[in-house]
Nucleic acid binder design. Structure first.
Lengths: 208, 208
DNA sequence: CACGTGAGTCTACGGGCGTAGACATCGATC
DNA sequence: GATCGATGTCTACGCCCGTAGACTCACGTG
């Protein structure tokens, strides 16, 4: 156990932390494009300007690298992460942000999409599921008033996911080429319907 | 060595059409579970009781096999394919059918999920996209009155997809373990909001 | 200026992939 | 009962995968 007094922040050529960041960045792009199985370690390394072995040297294994990428992406770069649910009109705000982030000319780097692209691998799917349940679902559910908060939060995330999947992953023309303002209006109605406490239109025998 | 066990083991004698069906069936299960890249020809063949080469002999290539699987699944086994949009209460009917088909104990063999699992391969994604646009989007849009029919149809499919993805593919606990009746009620409201013609002014204010 | 240490690379291995071509076997026909 | 096409299998090739171990090299320090 030694402390080499590494207080100086010089040395740009052989910079471990900068290399780490570069690998994480390249991995995020690769995983978002091709999923866990589709992205190779050699490809990730090449995108960061290093060799494949260095990736494993820094992150232990491809799976651990994937975990770090998903965690970082879900916490720092998420639609939900910022307090968007506290806006005066959260449905509209959510719709605007969602439509904006799913434009065709924007590389899809979202954590949801990375997870969906990687759902073929059970281990990768579990990592994504746990991350979604831990960060996003809890955040949304806490900001919802009324009953069935968990279910409504889940459906809200489902709508967001479905829109991302159909507009970005599949590039369904009806959504990819539609007018943004019209999409926002339609989406806002859907979101509002889930954000507002549910009306009991059919009689249920649940005590209120 | 030809032993009399031939009679006992004779599950399927040399029957070309039956073998074709068996391969298609096995391929559908494999693609639904692991996506285009994740499912191997050897695995598909093994599930049908044949060898890998026979698969290519019958379907030419893995990609052509995938195309046939997706086409068959989308046309014959789809939520939308049956005239569910013509029901007296299509929103509720859709919600009930969707919740029912996404139960945990039902193997997810839907064409949407196969497509999403396979989105890593550009060619497979294109096959799925074209199939969705050709069959489902057109069907839904034709049954919608009022303006923005294409956009509303796309969003309807997006909600369906998102629900499938979150409940089956990711198995988000909030949706996978929720009460079915409550999910149906919440979903029906969302569907009705998209099925009914859009109001001129959108963006109701939240009153909390 | 030598040197130890950590950053980064090279080579290789075992395995799975899609598929091409030669080979084996069954079943109906003459 | 021999023949022949359809049905199915075997072996092999070339490619890419994740990663383990030995290696090279630059750099801060004495």
């Amino acid at each position: 156990m030694k402390t080499p007094t590494a207080v100086l922040v010089a040395a740009r050529r052989r910079d471990a932390t900068a290399t780490r960041v570069a690998i994480l960045d390249s991995a995020r792009r690769a995983f978002a494009r091709a999923g866990y199985d589709g992205a190779g370690v050699r490809e990730i390394a090449s995108g960061a300007g290093v060799t494949a072995m260095l990736v494993n040297r820094y992150f232990g294994s491809k799976e651990q690298l994937f975990t770090e990428v998903v965690e970082q992406t879900m916490t720092s770069n998420s639609l939900i992460a910022g307090g968007i649910m506290d806006a005066p009109n959260p449905g509209r705000a959510l719709a605007e942000a969602l439509v904006k982030m799913t434009r065709a000319d924007i590389a899809p780097l979202d954590g949801f999409l990375i997870t969906f692209h990687s759902a073929s691998s059970p281990s990768a799917a579990k990592i994504g599921r746990d991350m979604i349940a831990a960060h996003h679902l809890k955040t949304v559910a806490k900001s919802l008033d009324g009953k069935l908060a968990d279910e409504r939060a889940g459906l809200l995330l489902a709508v967001i996911s479905g829109f991302q999947v159909m507009r970005q992953m599949i590039a369904l023309p009806a959504l990819a080429n539609a007018s943004e303002e019209k999409l926002v209006q339609l989406l806002a109605v859907v979101f509002d319907g889930l954000i507002q406490p549910p009306a009991k239109e059919t009689g249920r025998k649940k005590s209120s």
